[in-house]
Amino acid sequence: MIDPRPLDIVVLAKQVPDTHNVTGDVMTKDGTMNRNALSAIFNPEDLNALEMAVQIRERHGGTVTVITMGPPNAANILRESLWRGAGRVILLTDRRFAGADTLATSFALQKAIEKIGRYDLVMAGRQAIDGDTAQVGPQTAEKLGIPQITYAESVLGIADGRITVERALDSGSEIVRCQMPCLLTVVGSANTPRPPSVRRQMALKLAATPGEYAALQKRWPEFETVEALDAYLGAHDLRIPVWTADDIGATAETIGLAGSPTQVHKINFVVLESGESRTVAPTPEAIAAMVAELIHEYIVG
């Protein structure tokens, strides 16, 4: 039985540096980091969460709203969210959010979700590839006072205000049923996110935050003024709203660096070295000699 009631879903997404594709020029010789050498991408498991949300909407009706907290250019993943099926997107950006650890991040997300108001499900990727902490989902659920279902692999059904979910654990799997509203964190094996729709990409390519208007107007000189552009975007539902700390009612001591109990004491660029090391040529003779040595030292055999 399909629950006839439409569902309002909020998806939490993050723009992350593409740490899985770190190239040689990211680290400089003096051990500092060249952040510009890393491209910014949509956190992979957040795409799985968005896909799961869009599939639920296709089945049950309702809304999918994507929120991201990040720098102004995180609007890029919001546009991508629109192309991939989100109906509404919101950018949380404010200098005062900077330096937030997972606790401070979850405070800001709680406030933003509460400002959205009605929701049945909050969904996020299991973890972000830049920190791999998997903490923001559960911490946001705790602050919203709703249950959490981590490692969601698939939604088996939604009925009578409850959702049934299969969870993927290292040690097996679990099927749970939970009252809504609740928060799901979604694993990468849950689905294959659909590619951005070309039709939606065409229709929504101008979607922009106010901070992007000037650059957009340069690319589209047919809009003679920023006001004309804004009027056009407004008329076509292409404005990406930006919420600041004040907009969500977050107090200074709960967000950003000030709201973060964890502090970085120090950062090391470690050079690990082996005691004795030797280069072995990739030839049958050299490899055979290495194997003989390992057998001789009782490492193998």
Binding site: P17, T19, H20, V22, V26, M27, M33, L38, I129, D130, T262, Q263, V264, H265, K266, I267, N268, F269, V270
Partner: peptide, 9 residues
């Protein structure tokens, strides 16, 4: 940070 650094928190 993707394993390029070791941080003490």
């Amino acid at each position: 940070f993707g394993g390029n650094l070791v941080a003490t928190i």
